[in-house]
């Protein structure tokens, strides 16, 4: 056996346990889901489920809300955590307490914080109290467009810590020599950040983006705990749609909606992947 073939075999053996597990528990169910989405009951109907889905107003509403949330929350979280990572880095010495503090929101379970959110965001809660003393009208966080804002706030609050840690790791990987070289060339701090830091941490950014998408689905748990199965129309997400159809036993609709959701994400991923390929420096 040639050396290369032997290498291939070893690599394959390393990956084997993972491959088997993934095949059984993830790939096969996904394929089953795709197949089932092409059926209604027992008969094969092709793409009718998808066409029906797009003419369904509730689905369009859910899709719109999910897109708005994704497009707003993910970049926002990325920018905020990046800035905080830069900020923390600018301290020469920092108590590890401060770094740990950011990780605590991730660790706390959802249910315990529901009450806290209710007290803070309620019509007569803390934030409205503050706004009223400043002369602004009461904002009904629970039943208006600002519900989306509240959910975005909770999302950013919860996962900022983890993204900060990832960005800190990525920032530490940028060689100091590049910074010194740029400073010698006369760059000010703003140019340092934009021309040196951001391109160098592109793989980290990609990874943070991935993590954020995963967690943007998990935020559904908070929405469910705060609002139940039928939240108001501004925060009715695709996950609500899928979940409710689960209890309506409408499996064809549920699977076609999930497939559309995953296709949507795959497209975004492809764009980012190609982007990373072009600008990757650490290959």
């Amino acid at each position: 056996m040639t050396r290369k073939r032997k290498d291939y075999l070893t690599a394959f053996l390393f990956v084997l346990p993972s491959l088997i597990g993934i095949a059984i528990f993830y790939v096969v169910p996904y394929i089953i889901c795709i197949i089932k989405s092409l059926y209604i009951g027992q008969e094969f109907v092709g793409l009718i489920n998808y066409i029906q889905l797009f003419s369904n107003n509730t689905f369009i509403l859910a899709l719109k809300n999910t897109v708005i949330f994704t497009v707003v929350a993910i970049p926002l979280l990325m920018i905020i955590s990046f800035l905080i990572a830069l900020f923390l880095n600018s301290f020469k010495k920092i108590l590890s307490f401060f770094r740990s503090a950011f990780l605590i929101p991730v660790v706390v379970p959802v249910a315990s914080l529901i009450c806290v959110w209710q007290v803070v965001f309620d019509d007569y809660g803390a934030i409205n109290g503050l706004l009223n003393t400043l002369g602004i009208d009461t904002v009904e966080f629970f039943s208006s467009e600002f519900s989306m804002g509240m959910i975005i706030f909770i999302y950013v609050w919860k996962y900022c810590g983890f993204c900060v840690i990832l960005f800190t790791a990525g920032l530490a990987n940028v060689p100091k020599s590049l910074y010194e070289g740029a400073k010698l060339d006369g760059a000010n701090s703003f140019q340092l950040v934009t021309k040196v830091t951001i391109p160098m941490i592109t793989p980290t950014t990609f990874f943070v983006f991935l993590i954020e998408i995963i967690y943007s689905f998990k935020i559904f748990r908070e929405v469910f705990a705060l609002f139940g199965n039928y939240p108001n129309e501004h925060i009715y997400f695709l996950q609500n749609f899928i979940n409710n159809n689960y209890y309506n036993l409408n499996y064809p609709r549920l699977s076609s909606a999930s497939i559309i959701l995953s296709v949507f994400i795959i497209i975004i991923l492809l764009v980012f992947f190609i982007f990373e390929r072009k600008h990757s420096f650490s290959e």
Binding site: N57, T58, S143, Y230, N232, E233, Y236, F241, N248, N250
Partner: peptide, 21 residues
């Protein structure tokens, strides 16, 4: 806690979502 107009509006949207899901 809510006014009549908000009540009717919410009823309409949520019932619509419920029916069409």
């Amino acid at each position: 806690k809510i006014s009549i107009s908000m009540f009717v509006e919410d009823l309409k949207t949520k019932t619509k979502i419920y029916m069409e899901e």
